[in-house]
């Protein structure tokens, strides 16, 4: 078995008196697509932000490709990642292509403007957007198009690891299907390791190799997606079936 790309051990994080993560253990294999499910406010985003160093965990270790994520050259570390944010998080002062090519226009991966623009348009095409979109501003796009631009920006510098934070939230079922398919295809052809946060079960089935359920600050269940329906775990079953009654309290 190959070494895990991302390894979390006993990761804890509290905001004041609110302990969001209470010892998360998780391992994501190289080239694997891991989907983390869990109710709103269970700390899924916090977990991803801990890995990226946007949030500093209180305890535990995070290793990426065998190396401690909190040590070493931060720029080189971040250059291996791409991230699609929940709301797109596109820079609204820049045009679409400048957003996509952001990493290619400055810093260590800087290249000539024309070349960066060409790559941006190529990535936009990859997510199904025409080159005419390149010179528009993010505010002029629909929600689905913004998500696609966010996706194009996440993959622009060919990262080894891609995070998707609720990629289908706020989209209609058809657009959700399109985005899920794109994620699956892109992760597959790039050979990247992917970690997706979602509470949309159709996304889980479309994207995941492995599934992990986060509840009450710990990983409640983890395993291959095929075993998800016969897990016998009452928490996971309640979540998959979307029942109001069960071990997970509906009122949080």
């Amino acid at each position: 078995m190959t070494r895990a790309m991302i390894e979390l051990e006993g990761v804890e994080k509290a905001f004041g008196a609110n302990a969001v993560l209470r010892g998360v253990n998780l391992s994501v294999g190289r080239g694997e697509s891991m989907v983390i499910i869990g109710g709103s406010g269970t700390g899924k985003s916090v977990l991803i932000k801990c890995i990226l160093g946007l949030v500093k965990p209180d305890a535990g270790t995070i290793r990426v490709d065998g190396a401690d994520a909190t040590k070493g050259d931060r720029d080189a570390f971040l250059a291996r990642f791409g991230m699609l944010f929940q709301g797109g998080a596109l820079f609204d002062s820049m045009t679409v292509w400048q957003n996509v090519a952001f990493r290619l226009l400055r810093g260590a991966q800087k290249r000539p403007k024309d070349e960066a623009r060409e790559i941006a348009i190529e990535k936009l095409r990859r997510v199904g957007l025409k080159s005419a979109v390149a010179d528009l501003y993010p505010a002029e796009l629909s929600g689905g198009m913004q998500k696609r631009v966010g996706l194009a920006r996440a993959i622009a510098a060919d990262p080894e690891i891609i995070f998707f934070d609720e990629p289908t939230t706020g989209l209609d079922p058809i657009m959700s299907g399109v985005i899920n398919e794109l994620i699956r295809e892109i992760v597959g052809e790039m050979g990247a390791t992917a970690m997706t946060i979602t509470h949309d079960m159709s996304s889980v089935r479309a994207i995941a190799d492995h599934v992990a359920m986060l509840h009450d600050g710990v990983i409640q269940w983890t395993g291959p997606v095929e075993e998800m329906d016969a897990s016998g775990d009452p928490y996971l079953e309640q979540f998959i079936q979307g029942r109001a009654e069960g071990p997970i309290e509906a009122v949080r």
Binding site: K49, L52, G53, L54, R74, D75, L78, A79, F81, G82, M83, F85, Q86, G87, A89, L90, F91, D92, F102, R103, R106, G107, A108, R153
Partner: peptide, 16 residues
């Protein structure tokens, strides 16, 4: 606004 819409986080993930 950039902070609220996660654009600041996005900057960090883009090594800026």
């Amino acid at each position: 606004t950039m902070k609220v819409t996660e654009q600041i986080d996005a900057l960090v993930t883009l090594s800026t």
